[in-house]
Design a binder for these strands. Structure first.
Lengths: 239, 239
DNA sequence: GTCTATAGCACGATAGAC
DNA sequence: GTCTATCGTGCTATAGAC
């Protein structure tokens, strides 16, 4: 059955090419977003960058918001990887320290990606922002109402550490570990978000704020391990 | 000199009418932003709302970004007022508690105003976001490079409280009071920002997170004053 | 599947009559 | 000071040829 085989091979090639183009679109999109932000990712610009017509994009992605969704998923995977690199740290406080730093470093190193992941979801849930000039279906949050799900993995890694802290009776606050995790997350996000907005928080470097915040959220555990104490530790990055 | 007087009266009336119209534009703008967000405030829509032509707006505001700037100033004044209501609290920890709550309540009560004030400044300082379809000079951050200044008053109120805490030796962390103030601010901002983005932080109510955060940042002072302890205090608002 | 061409819309800002 | 009319731009998405 050589004819059958060759046909199968052809369709297989087709599928691979299709997949490859889709991947290439995402790759170029990611780079544009990284450098100029999602707001400046237009279908025209994207099409020109991959040397196709704008119409071709719509064969692989339902809309611009659909691309945003894919990029967000990739970003969350990237952040999760950064966290995974520290899961081997046995001490939960030390692990939280490492993860907290990693989180803020991720946000400051990839500001536009971070913005896309955590700061431009407004349009998906409210009647608010990101109402651009174009047509409907444009908002980055569209296409998936459960867009928060991809970040759940990283949040639960933080929560796990708090559970361990609580189990070892090293957690001062008497609240649910999940609530602590969300509180710490909010704190870290606040640092990144204010820094990304440029004008705000002009005085204190982000690294110092991170140290302070980690101290604040589980200081006792920290104080018994001077390895991670903040005050007498030179700031490595002065972003 | 009756002729002179009448002329003066006329120009005075003119000036008042001018001022009144400008005030009316701002008032309507504020309401539109409050309900639909700044991104959806277009000069056309605004003009129709005040029953003038779009061109008339440019007699009172240089650009759309100029309106944004005026609205931000008003918002900061409003937030400052909310803080001023608590400056009379003598105990610095209690004062910080009240101000922290007020901050988050402000953000959650006026999400779009808050967004305009703290989350849409990106375009002013970076090559990023808010690149809309229209012409240049559109970004909300334009028109004043020192846009962070209006918020300085509220920040220094927080910093003052930390200075007092430090003076009374009730501040656990050994860092500069200003850094603590910015850290706490970042924490509060993170809570509001994540809540405003809807999808994120689905589990824990904001009020609980605020309590936890305030506890985290100056817990010892808090624990000696059970009046403000959080765990055994019913959440009044479950936003 | 990919292209060209364009529809259709919305915007910010300005020119020039009155 | 206000209006009408419009310029110039950018966008998403689709129609229809190949």
């Amino acid at each position: 059955m050589p004819r059958m085989a060759s046909q199968e091979r052809r369709t297989e090639q087709r599928r691979e090419q299709r997949e490859a183009l889709r991947e290439r679109i995402l790759e170029v999109s990611r780079e544009i977003v990284r450098r100029e932000g999602f707001a400046s990712l237009s279908m025209r610009k994207l099409a020109e960058a991959i040397d196709y017509s704008p119409a071709a994009l719509y064969l692989h992605f339902k809309s611009r918001g659909d691309i945003a969704r894919a990029l967000r998923v990739q970003g969350h995977a990237s952040l999760r990887d950064a966290f995974l690199a520290h899961t081997s740290i046995a001490d939960p406080a030390a692990r939280l320290n490492a993860m907290g730093r990693a989180y803020v470093e991720f946000g400051l190193a990839e500001p536009e990606t971070y913005r896309l992941m955590f700061m431009e979801l407004a349009a998906s849930a409210g009647p608010s922002s990101e109402a651009r000039a174009g047509s409907p279906g444009d908002a980055p949050g569209n296409g998936d109402a459960h867009a928060a799900e991809p970040g759940a993995a990283t949040l639960s890694m933080i929560a796990d550490a708090f559970v361990e802290l609580r189990a070892a009776d090293r957690l001062p606050a008497r609240a649910a570990p999940l609530a602590c995790a969300e509180g710490l997350w909010a704190n870290l996000h606040g640092i990144v978000a204010l820094k990304l907005n440029g004008a705000a928080l002009p005085e204190t470097p982000a690294a110092t704020l991170v140290e302070l915040s980690l101290d604040a959220w589980f200081a006792p555990a920290n104080r018994t391990e001077p390895r991670f104490s903040s005050a007498n530790r030179p700031d490595t990055s002065t972003r």
